[in-house]
Design a protein around this nucleic acid. Structure first.
Lengths: 214, 214
DNA sequence: ATTTTTTTTGACCGATTGGAAAAATTCTAG
DNA sequence: CTAGAATTTTTCCAATCGGTCAAAAAAAAT
């Protein structure tokens, strides 16, 4: 009982690799059909292995889902954490929007998995939402409120401002099919994220009011 | 073969009622778990009847789901249809936002069902998206573009403007759990929709730039 | 009151679900 | 090479899935 000689060596090289393959496949499946709509067989096939083999690495469906959610929330909030008092408030917010939009472009499956979880009421996730997440948003809301008090930003509700950034950016991942269907083949190509970035820049900077005629 | 004496009387009073009960229950279930994640037993229990009894009114799971989707898309696009050239462009857009936000408040399940369908790629729905929906959006985009050309609205991408309205308003239905978790018990009460309406008014009207000091 | 139609129920079906057990295989260290 | 551990496959299971069917019950029509 001195050197803690328990079983501390469960991490082989092949284990790490296969676990990564499984999580990757599970992300594909879960992000489309949600937790309940996805099957282990589906994930196993996407991962190129048999179901019992998959269950050798993750002992249950939940055990695959949970780490995905944790990882995603962490990545997801990174851009918000980086918003600080360094530069111009408008530039900070603009930068936050841009980073969030890039994440919707580069990690759409992660966004959809998160959305799926929200839609079903985020069971077993609700704790983190109104502790960790709420704390972070509260902190950034105070930061934004400070900017407003200094007259460096129009006075509005900082919480709903953050919501609107989440909503507008994630929309391009979660409702991708709709976006591309509406834009059509010409406008809906890869350039749609650049168009979105330009539009959002203007929206959050100055809104829709026309410039006064000189 | 003269008077077409087929079976043209399948609509009894009790049939209409039970069908309504079933669709109501199905909306509850489908909006949470999506099509694949929902079970007929679940819907039957929510509707207060046995599974075979439910299948007496709708002969398959898809037959319950399809009419829900059709009905929802129709209701969902109504506010957009009503946007026309009657009054001030900014007032028209403001009114559209308000109506859309009210729908997220009053019909959150419908919004979530729609979101669920988008997340899984809208199979058997894609047709309508880039015919009916695209046509409507194209028409309204032209209307908006006209306003911009007349200098009555800031010049931006009208498609992404519409997307941003969809995103910001539906967010309060689809991510309701997150919104309430972040806002907390005090700010997250019934008043959150009024706060959202005020914020969105300002965002779309004039953005976040601070007013110039006099 | 009785016939006919509509509605509901109970029993059941094959396929799929999440998961267990154990044998068979492959890998790795000595 | 060979023992031991790690990995994979085969087989299997009880529960649940979407859905059928015939019989019972309830309404409606006569």
């Amino acid at each position: 009982m001195t050197t803690d000689a328990g079983p501390p060596r469960p991490v082989t090289r092949i284990q790490r690799e296969k676990q990564e393959v499984i999580l990757e496949a599970a992300l594909d499946v879960f992000s489309q059909f949600g937790f309940r709509g996805s099957t282990i067989d589906q994930i196993a096939e996407a991962a190129g292995m048999s179901k019992p083999n998959l269950l050798y690495y993750f002992k249950s469906k939940e055990d695959i889902h949970a780490p995905l959610l944790e990882r995603i929330l962490d990545i997801w909030l990174d851009p918000l954490r980086e918003m600080n008092d360094d530069g111009d408030p408008l530039a900070e917010i603009r930068s936050y929007i841009r980073r969030k939009l890039e994440m919707s472009r580069d990690f759409p499956r992660e966004s959809r998995l998160f959305a799926n979880e929200m839609l079903r009421g985020a069971p077993g996730f609700y704790e983190i939402l109104h502790t960790d997440l709420k704390d972070l948003v509260d902190e950034k809301a105070r930061l934004i409120k400070g900017w407003m008090a200094e007259g460096r930003l129009a006075v509005t509700d900082p919480y709903h401002l953050i919501f609107s950034i989440w909503a507008t950016t994630q929309h391009y991942a979660d409702f991708d099919i709709q976006v591309r269907a509406v834009l059509g083949p010409d406008r809906g190509g890869e350039g749609r994220f650049d168009d979105a970035a330009r539009f959002l820049d203007q929206l959050f900077l100055s809104g829709l009011s026309p410039k006064k005629k000189a």
